[in-house]
Nucleic acid binder design. Sequence first.
DNA 1: TCGCTGGTTTGATCCAGATCAAAGATCGGC
DNA 2: GCCGATCTTTGATCTGGATCAAACCAGCGA
Lengths: 257, 257
Amino acid sequence: MTKSRVVNLDELRAHCQKCSLYRLCMPMGLEQGDLERLDRIIHRRRPVEKGEYLYRLGDPFQSVYALRAGSLKTFTTNHEGHEQIIGFHLPGELLGLDAIAGRVHVTSAKALETVSVCELPFERLEELSLQIPGLQRHLLSLMSEELQHEHCHLAVLARAPVESRLASFLCQLSDRFRARGYSATDFNLSMSRNDIANLLGMAVETISRLFSQFQDQGLLQVERKHVLIRDLPALQALANRCNPDIRGESALNRQEN
Amino acid sequence: MTKSRVVNLDELRAHCQKCSLYRLCMPMGLEQGDLERLDRIIHRRRPVEKGEYLYRLGDPFQSVYALRAGSLKTFTTNHEGHEQIIGFHLPGELLGLDAIAGRVHVTSAKALETVSVCELPFERLEELSLQIPGLQRHLLSLMSEELQHEHCHLAVLARAPVESRLASFLCQLSDRFRARGYSATDFNLSMSRNDIANLLGMAVETISRLFSQFQDQGLLQVERKHVLIRDLPALQALANRCNPDIRGESALNRQEN
DNA sequence: TCGCTGGTTTGATCCAGATCAAAGATCGGC
DNA sequence: GCCGATCTTTGATCTGGATCAAACCAGCGA
């Protein structure tokens, strides 16, 4: 009880201006006035407890959600009831953008731990984006980033051997933690082995074996949810077998000298 | 020569107002004036011949492209030079949206046959989107659709057995041809078996065997590039093993009576 | 027209990783 | 603090689809 009251007070206090995450979920260089206008359309929802849904596949689309604290997974469900995880989400990320086109949610979002979110009614966000150029650009950028990210995920699923898949997953998590000011090498996994396996298109047993293998090779230490990366470069080398090589292929196709 | 002059004349004539595709690539219900403003920022580029690039991974991002005729593939290249196809694109689609965030192309786009495109300088498109609400919404919708589509692709790659993958690919093509007013059951593949295999994360040999198998089962007829679908429902049944089930899971989770 | 090249098919073999099975850990509820 | 449920690990086996090998075929430039 006391706890829930504290959370609520926190939420009331959590205006964009004070929020440590706004540089992740909202555009840089917004004027004070714009930030306030933005802040005014945002609802702070009560926390979503572990295992609860923020939204479900098929729900009408009203809002996008900025994740303030906690983490969650998004997934689709096919007609046989099989769940396919699309991604895990960390504070500062915007959820639900894939529902804009059809005005209906095409994924479900389930909390992996207690989650608090800011709800942004999409109609109002759209109006505001017409008035604040930086906001429009930011929305487009966020979606573009999401597309890029899914491209990488596609490449991993299409080709990569299992070691690269897990390495890629861990490196990506590491990057995202770093970007949020947390340790890039020492963190906790909020998702189960099962969820990781699902995301990466492999069997739980394989995940488990790979964690052991990586540990034996001195790449990392795992104990239950806790991961300590010991050799990030080596892990990145494994991962890079998939990621696109932007500077790359110079030797092959771009020799201009 | 004569031919190229004809093409150029065609292009000059090809304003949005006259273009049979604008309802695909551009927003519905735009006023005449808005359509003209839009039309004014568009460059018609000379055709891109088969095998040529519209843009390459690493190129600075200036414009998005609306495909007018022909088809192309987008792919990334990893640091070992392996190509991973992200998708095939048909007339009416907008390309390059994934480069907005980083201002650099993260995929390459290569023509599968002679292609003509409208080039939309992104800065101007962005400005215009601030002035034409329908345009902003349309851009967001297009990206949202692209996200949705990639979710399906992820699900296919993560789980689906090879038959479902190919069935899913064919059904999707079929839908897209239908949406463009072409036959949904009788069409030509502009991409090689190799490209299909790459997209679907499998070996060419497997694609070839599956085409034979589907033909033996009476699902379709293939001869070289030409496909005639004989039993679309059966093909869809195979494919649906992956696609998200929006109305679905009602029996399990939504019993409210 | 011929012969080369790259795409496609078909067959035989092999292996990465799934599946099956079962024993530990952990955790939440009472 | 106990107990069942759930998650994780480890080992043994099996198999879908990759890989290897080779014939085949269409298109095209000389």
